[in-house]
Simulated assay, not measured.
Amino acid sequence: MKKKIFFPLVLLTALTISCSSDDDAASTASLTLNLSGLENLGSNFVYEGWIVVNGTPVTTGTFTVNDAGALSKTQFDVDRAQLNNATDFVLSIEPTNDPDPAPSNTKYLAGSFSGSTASVSTGIIGNFSTSTGKYLLGTPTNGNANPNAGVWFMDGNGPSVGLNLPTLDAGWKYEGWVVSNGTVLSTGAFTNPNGPDMSAIYSGMMPSPPFPGEDFLVNAPSGLTFPANLSGATLVISVEPFPDNSPMPFTLKPLSHNVANPAVTGTTINMERSLLSFPTGTVSR
């Protein structure tokens, strides 16, 4: 008669754990992010990666970015079969406490896999390579009494539309900014460059042009005196996440211009395209 062999319970447990670990390792693979130009989103938002498998987004995990632009995590364990079958990678901006398992509308970077690598860019937001902008300084909401205190992103010859920008999806908005002596002031957010923006908190009582802009005449923030003087200021058009993560300008600034000192008022001036700060990178599987 053959003798029965009994393994100690501890050994059986160890064997079970070892086999389970091998199975887990075989079923996952690493996804590595090499991204630059991302900003710190603050405490209320995070970045989340997604692979697209048979047209369906599958999360690869979330991460944050510090003030130096370093990612809190660059390597993620992903289901091996899904990663091998993925056609695209997408990076979105999500609420830190997100009840929705699907990607938000704020899709930031994207690219298609070619072999083991996907080069990602902001092309999913829009093509800004041909964007142009014009502005003029004046204060129409007080009868132009302080012309160097206001900016309007328009062509004064007409007047007509001054901003040539791509249409944005629901997760993004444009916003105008004035940066003067270290102070940043919003001229208002907008989705349609052919119409007015959503703010007029600093303007006067008279009608304003039907285009984005602001007269800095009243309701000056603490530490400032209005009417303002925009001589030497920097003007910026940014692309902002919606919902917005910060009251300050976001990384994406397709148009900007430095106002002359002293300022030239009542004249249409061309803005400059500035795309070098847009984030880019690669994703490897």
Rank of each mutant, 00 (worst) to 15 (best):
N144A: 02
V53A: 14
N164A: 14
S208N: 06
L109R: 04
Y202M: 00
Y47W: 14
S277V: 11
A118F: 07
T267N: 06
M1G: 15
M1E: 13
T32A: 12
L137V: 02
S208T: 06
G123Q: 09
L217G: 02
G126C: 09
A81Q: 14
N192E: 05
N261P: 02
G213E: 02
G213I: 01
D88Q: 15
N34R: 14
A70K: 14
A26V: 00
P166E: 04
L109F: 04
Y174P: 01
H257M: 07
P99E: 02
G150W: 03
T268L: 08
L136Q: 03
L137F: 03
S160Q: 15
V78D: 04
L12C: 15
T183I: 04
S121H: 03
A26R: 08
L11G: 03
A233I: 00
P221T: 09
P212A: 05
S246C: 11
I269K: 10
G182W: 09
E39P: 10
V90H: 07
G150M: 01
P254G: 05
G281E: 08
S256P: 01
W172N: 03
A263M: 00
E214A: 09
T28C: 05
Y47M: 14
S160V: 08
D24V: 12
A189Q: 13
A102F: 07
L235T: 04
G61N: 14
F278G: 08
S246A: 13
A70T: 12
N84I: 04
W152F: 08
S92M: 03
T187C: 04
T267A: 08
N54V: 01
P103Q: 12
T74N: 14
Y174M: 03
V90N: 06
A149N: 06
W172Y: 10
S112K: 06
A170N: 12
V283P: 09
L275N: 10
D79L: 11
S20Y: 10
F128L: 06
P103R: 06
F216L: 05
F211Q: 01
F278D: 05
P196Q: 03
K4R: 13
